[in-house]
């Protein structure tokens, strides 16, 4: 269970949001909506522990995430604004290294399969791929992250084509079906039924 209580975020002396709270139970999803600059990315960074809120705290199964550190990191998968893939490595190498560092179980076959699902050529360098394909190469990690009980996805639908959006929606629905939690941000409604919607102004 993921809980947030009294979260406040101040960036450049501007209060983005204050007194924000929610509780997410197993199998539930939260959509963070709002216009550009409303603090969606900041909220997701607070939820994964990269950013400290100016007030309030985030709790995972009752314990504040600040005290959990790596134990919490092992439970989550965070895909940020930047795709987090290296230009000089191939899609396959990127995925393998990402899995190793995140401590996710993988095999050579599961990597090939994940990339094939997202139709990313495994052996081509990321710098040769288009923006949408880079996004797909980053999202392929989700296929190998089924064991993580919480996904935090920052604008996962950007740069994706219709088929990519459908694939991602399927992955999210499947993950929720396994009793996991998904928090994602988007400024337009992707047509995915979310348990809770948080509208930032």
């Amino acid at each position: 269970m993921l809980e947030a209580a009294g979260l406040e975020c101040v960036r450049q002396q501007r209060v983005l949001f204050a007194g924000l709270g929610f509780a997410l139970r197993n199998g539930e999803s939260l959509r963070v909506a709002g216009p550009n600059g409303s603090g969606k990315t900041s909220l997701l960074r607070i939820l994964c522990g990269l950013l400290l809120p100016s007030a309030g705290e985030v709790r995972w199964k009752g314990a504040p995430i600040r005290s959990l550190r790596e134990d919490y990191s092992r439970q989550i998968v965070y895909l940020g604004h930047a795709p987090a893939v290296k230009d000089e490595l191939t899609a396959g190498e990127n995925l393998e290294i990402a899995c190793r560092l995140a401590g996710l179980p993988f095999t050579g076959d599961s990597i090939a399969e994940a990339l094939a699902r997202f139709q990313v050529p495994q052996f081509s360098f990321i710098k040769k791929l288009s923006q949408g394909q880079r996004r797909r190469a980053a999202l392929a990690r989700l296929c190998l992250s089924e064991s993580a009980p919480l996904w935090l996805l920052d604008e996962p639908f950007t740069a994706l084509d219709a088929a990519g959006i459908e694939l991602l929606k399927g992955l999210i629905a499947g993950h929720l079906g396994r009793g996991a939690m998904v928090v994602y941000s988007t400024h337009q409604d992707p047509g995915l039924a979310a348990t809770q919607v948080l509208e930032l102004a």
């Binding site: 990191s73 965070y78 940020g80 987090a84 230009d87 560092l101 401590g103």
Partner: peptide, 19 residues
């Protein structure tokens, strides 16, 4: 830092000091 892989290292399963 620029391509976001550093964020992933911060959120990895390994203590940041080891990284």
């Amino acid at each position: 830092h620029a391509d976001g892989t550093l964020e992933q290292m911060l959120l990895g399963a390994t203590p940041l000091g080891v990284v």
